[in-house]
């Protein structure tokens, strides 16, 4: 299928409304972070204006924002790594090995993701209290890996089963161990799946509110709790909230830009087979 200019144009036209719909709220949040509250509500709406940085200054000076940013980053990266390692192993296990009741166990993995978090949070809290893990990175990390893991496992099963068996068998004949096959052959082929799993594991931790609220307090508090605090008893502080949201968005964008080069057909089957 060769792309023709006509098809390219049509695609572009079809995308415009989607992009507008997707990006307008983000544009509005970004500009709100540089506006006074009165300007945010100005009529006619202000598209061009003289930016102010007061909102950023206030967020950065009134509360220990940088400390919370660090907490969020450490916990989110930990969650990503933890759920990728465990998820890859288990996903490969499910994709390549059958045992009695494996279907049921797989469904049970998904069931752990179906329980409303509001219900799990109190037992979690009591558990972490017993273990002395309240308000620690570990407490949140453990919770978030367990949130991210079911999706990682299920997603990776889907990518691993598509890896042709003959490639793996050939590698094993060449003396590779099972683990070696997984690392050297399977993971590169299924890279897009791992990227998606990584992005969502990161986001689960990065945006999670309820557990962060209940399980943390001072030391391990993460950004979503801080940002929710800007929705005060006297209404939301639109400017400060937006400024915080923009700062919180940036690490995600960087991460995605880094990861997205693995999200392409560079490492397809053809390349490996050839």
């Amino acid at each position: 299928m060769k792309p023709t200019p006509l098809r390219a144009t049509l695609t572009g036209v079809a995308l415009l409304p989607v992009l507008a719909w997707t990006l307008f709220p983000i544009y509005w949040i970004t500009t709100a972070s540089f506006k006074t509250e009165l300007a945010l509500y100005a009529k006619p709406p202000q598209w061009l204006f003289t930016p102010i940085v007061d909102n950023y200054t206030r967020v950065l000076t009134n509360i220990p924002f940088v400390q919370y940013l660090k907490n969020s980053l450490v916990i989110a990266l930990g969650t990503t790594i933890g759920s990728l390692v465990l998820g890859t192993l288990a996903g490969y296990g499910f994709a390549r090995f059958r045992f009695r009741g494996s279907e049921a166990v797989r469904f049970l993995v998904l069931v752990t993701r179906m329980a409303p978090r509001m219900v799990l949070v109190v037992p979690y809290y009591l558990m972490m209290q017993r273990l002395g893990l309240l308000d620690t990175y570990t407490g949140l990390l453990v919770a978030y890996v367990s949130f991210a893991l079911p999706f990682s496992i299920w997603l990776l099963i889907g990518f691993f089963v598509d890896v042709p068996l003959d490639v793996e068998e050939a590698a094993m004949i060449d003396g590779c161990s099972r683990l070696g096959v997984l690392v050297r052959i399977v993971i590169p082929i299924a890279a897009p799946g791992l990227v998606v799993a990584a992005i969502f594991a990161f986001l689960v931790s990065w945006n999670e509110f309820l557990f962060a609220l209940i399980l943390s307090g001072v030391e391990a508090k993460t950004l979503p709790v801080v940002i929710a605090g800007l929705n005060t008893d006297a209404g939301p502080l639109y400017g400060e909230m937006s400024a915080a949201a923009v700062m919180v968005m940036l690490p995600n964008i960087v991460m995605t830009l880094v990861l997205q080069r693995y999200l392409v057909k560079g490492l397809t089957l053809g390349a490996v087979k050839g």
């Binding site: 995308l15 989607v18 992009l19 997707t22 990006l23 307008f24 709220p25 983000i26 509005w28 949040i29 709100a32 945010l40 509500y41 992005i199 986001l203 945006n207 509110f209 950004l223 979503p224 940002i227 929710a228 929705n231 939301p236 639109y238 909230m241 937006s242 915080a244 949201a245 919180v248 968005m249 995600n252 964008i253 995605t256 830009l257 997205q260 999200l263």
Partner: peptide, 23 residues
């Protein structure tokens, strides 16, 4: 453009919803 399409995922849910309320 791909990364642009992903942006809504990166907005803290409560801020996204608050801004939609404004809109």
């Amino acid at each position: 453009i791909r990364v642009l399409l992903l942006l809504p995922l990166f907005v803290v849910p409560v801020v996204g919803a608050t801004m939609w309320r404004v809109i």
